[in-house]
Design a protein around this nucleic acid. Structure first.
Lengths: 233, 233
DNA sequence: CAGTGGTCTAGACCACACG
DNA sequence: GTGTGGTCTAGACCACTGA
């Protein structure tokens, strides 16, 4: 059992053509002389880096993130806007629009009471048919209607609000964390539970400071590069 | 095999006193009716959230991050500075200072040639005796000397450069990503390989734009909260 | 249907801490 | 030494895909 399993896999993946299918897990495990569990553990890193793609019932394929979506954090913009800038087509999938009840955290964030109705939109962002982000927006009732969503929703709540122009938007406060993918997010992004994701937990306010949108954005590493310029104290 | 293993563990951990030792993994696995592998998988999330601490040869203990280090990203400041603001004592451990040869990435970042000497400092930041961050700074030769480091190093290269005042510092450009812990980082932070970490990859420039410091900062989730205010485009 | 990845089990051996 | 967590193996069953 070589300790450089990671390196050997890296070579194997780098040598493969994009789109090429790797041997099945049992075969590859035998070929590399490790158990299937060990092989899968080592493959995790490559999956979250966007270098391979595993599809249940189909197989494991080598991919290359053709373009990385890059953006500064100083300005708030939608993934669609960022992608458009580099000419990468993206789409929204698995859109779910529903009214639900505010839990503790949501109520606190939106200045509501626990149990109040809130408007909830979740969806997956697809680039080159690959899920690369999972987004959930929660808004107080009254700002968006399901009808309006059905008509105009392109995948970005921000763009919809901007297009509407009302209410005028203020700033967004964004908290940044690394998390292990929760089960429902892992499922939506076609990754394994526990894989590393970048999480933005953001509060968007109207120009007069009213909480407007509480959003959770999970980003697959490897497809995004966020940066910020920091000035010395 | 209950599907709410996660919830059951959460209750169990929440009910325990801080500092309390959990039953050993074999016992707990039997008690919960799952295999040890499954139990360990479920525990990962709690470890990176800072709710438990596992020590090889000793046991698993319930912890509570007593204070969270919080900071805006607009201003560059050291962990020591952030911690001091909230009155949390931190220390540096496992300090390694050495001269090494620039690899591809380092050379490119620092405007050097592959194989040039560079000055390299790595260390772990400890809060309440718990490793919470792993930092590596790489500088072109000539700015810092081992002697100077030995005399004045408190854990922060930034603070040392600021104290020196020469060269005057410009801005820092920081890229933000989520990564699975590489083996050496996992070892330093006492977490499992593959656990989620927040990674800042930053370039610090002098006031005249010369690359001065290429740094990698790995942060344990649960102990830090970074935020940024984003203005609407 | 057969073949794939997703998950879990039971058991083993190791490295480590501590008495 | 004993008991802990860290890692790995071999094998099983499931859910899913596509012919």
């Amino acid at each position: 059992m070589p300790k450089d399993l990671q390196s050997r896999l890296e070579i194997l993946i780098a040598a493969a053509e994009p789109g090429e299918q790797l041997p099945s897990e049992p075969k590859l495990a035998k070929q590399l002389g490790v158990s299937r569990a060990t092989l899968r553990e080592a493959m995790r890193a490559f999956e979250t880096r966007g270098l391979i793609r595993r599809q249940q019932g189909v197989g494991t394929f080598v991919t290359r993130p053709s373009q990385i979506i890059e953006s500064g954090l100083e300005v708030l913009e939608s993934i669609e806007t960022m992608a458009e800038r580099i000419g990468l087509p993206v789409a929204a999938g698995a859109v779910e629009i529903r009214t639900c009840l505010a839990d503790d955290e949501t109520a606190r964030r939106l200045n509501l009471t626990v149990g109040d109705d809130v408007f909830c939109v979740s969806r997956v962002i697809l680039a080159e048919d690959r899920p690369v982000a999972f987004l959930v927006d929660t808004l107080p009732p009254g700002y968006l209607t399901p009808d309006e969503m059905a008509a105009d929703f392109t995948g970005s709540v921000l763009d919809l609000l901007l297009k509407r122009g009302n209410p005028p938007l203020g700033n967004s406060r964004c908290e940044i964390a690394a998390v292990a993918a929760p089960p429902e997010v892992a499922r939506a992004l076609h990754i394994q539970r526990g894989d590393s994701l970048l999480l933005f937990e953001a509060m968007l306010y109207t120009a007069d400071g009213t909480p407007l949108d509480y959003s959770l954005s999970y980003f697959l590493p490897g497809y995004f590069k966020f940066h910020v310029v920091r000035r010395v104290g």
